[in-house]
Design a protein around this nucleic acid. Structure first.
Lengths: 210, 210
DNA sequence: ACCAAGTTCCACCAAGTGGTGGAACTCTGC
DNA sequence: GCAGAGTTCCACCACTTGGTGGAACTTGGT
């Protein structure tokens, strides 16, 4: 039965092309991280990837499509490594996100990319605005659900903030920490401070382990 | 804080030039906010300001110098409006910073500028990196001093974090909130959430209003 | 071997980039 | 009104930008 639709790509493509596309995305991620969307150039990305810039154009069509491909690839990586290990306990969710933060430490370029894009995409009309908004929304939804749960359990008290706004505050702190860390390397321990923030905001602080 | 001699220019200059310089800085702030440092162009800024791009070059010499002039101008505005009203009580400091956040609401372009630059400047070698680091450092120093004070007073308990790291966490939250607000307009109330964060982190919460 | 589709690169385009030189103009103090 | 410094713009530079057209080459299935 060679007919498996899982691994088969929808549009026809050759193995060589897929390799090239991957290489371009990797270099594009680095370039966008360093110089932002406007500052990075397709020619520079193509040169680093070892191909002509016309080849890049053939695969992605235009600069915006390349950017969206990079974001999609990055999120897919994150999801692939963190979601499977996440059970549905509050502790499990916290551990999973702290794990993401720890793994981010190994790829500062990607963190830099997302931070720069998040800030850049604050302007209406930015090509990645919708994608970045959705990225945040996913996190907010998860945290808001947990906050609701914890309030029902009485583990955390209602402070007059809606769960969504409270969740947005948590996400903002995380994002802000990443920006701060990039600007002041070594001054803060992002995973540790994220863990501390999550444990506090989700009511996991107790008489147990410090 | 660099030069404090705003009123008395060292080099001779005419009134017309000062007006032009101001106009250029205003447009540059908007352009850098929208497109980042790399994405904004000197010609575009000059066009918006109603002058030739050679005129811009005459006044600022190069793109980096223009960026630094914009940042310095922005900080000078902030300092001029918030510092005089700040007494040395904890409540006074909190009110002063919440006031800055409230005034920021009226100038989203400038907030966008600083957010974009903070994220961009995470890369070593960015022309505004040192300036942005110093901007953060000023805030961290203020908050760290207050945290130390409040710990001595017993108003806030030592949580194992150094005052500087705790202060950096506060600054990160503030910055993160501004980015979040730009990306999701209306979802969060930055001054309110900043006030809540400051009051909580600096031990100003009491049995009063919910 | 054949062939259609996928891939790659060369050459080119119009437009825009930061930056320079110099001539013409305006402002200020005398 | 004069002189000199400050200001402004035109013309130009070498270079880069995102994007296009087409010809040559690879790939994978038959």
């Amino acid at each position: 039965m060679p007919d498996r639709q899982d691994a088969v790509p929808r549009t026809k493509e050759y193995a060589t092309g897929r390799v090239t596309r991957r290489a371009i995305i990797a270099e594009a991620a680095e370039a966008f991280a360093e110089k932002g969307f406007h500052g990075a150039s397709l020619r520079g990305i193509a040169r680093e990837a070892g191909v002509d810039h016309a080849t890049l154009m053939h695969h992605f069509g235009n600069k915006t499509a390349l950017l969206l491909a990079v974001i999609e690839w990055h999120d897919a990586q994150d999801a692939a490594t963190s979601l499977p290990a996440m059970d549905f306990t509050v502790e499990g969710v916290v551990d999973a996100f702290v794990g993401v933060a720890e793994r981010n430490r190994a790829t500062p370029g990607l963190v830099q990319l997302l931070s720069t894009l998040s800030a850049e995409a604050g302007r209406e009309g930015h090509p990645a605005r919708a994608a970045l908004q959705q990225r945040h929304q996913v996190l907010v939804d998860v945290f808001a659900a947990i906050i609701r749960l914890r309030r029902d359990e009485g583990a955390v008290d209602d402070d007059g903030l809606s769960p969504e706004v409270h969740a947005a505050l948590i996400v903002s702190t995380w994002e802000g920490l990443q920006v701060y860390d990039a600007l002041h390397p070594g001054d803060v321990d992002v995973p540790e401070l994220l863990a501390r923030t999550l444990r506090r905001e989700l009511g996991l602080d107790g008489p147990l382990s410090g």
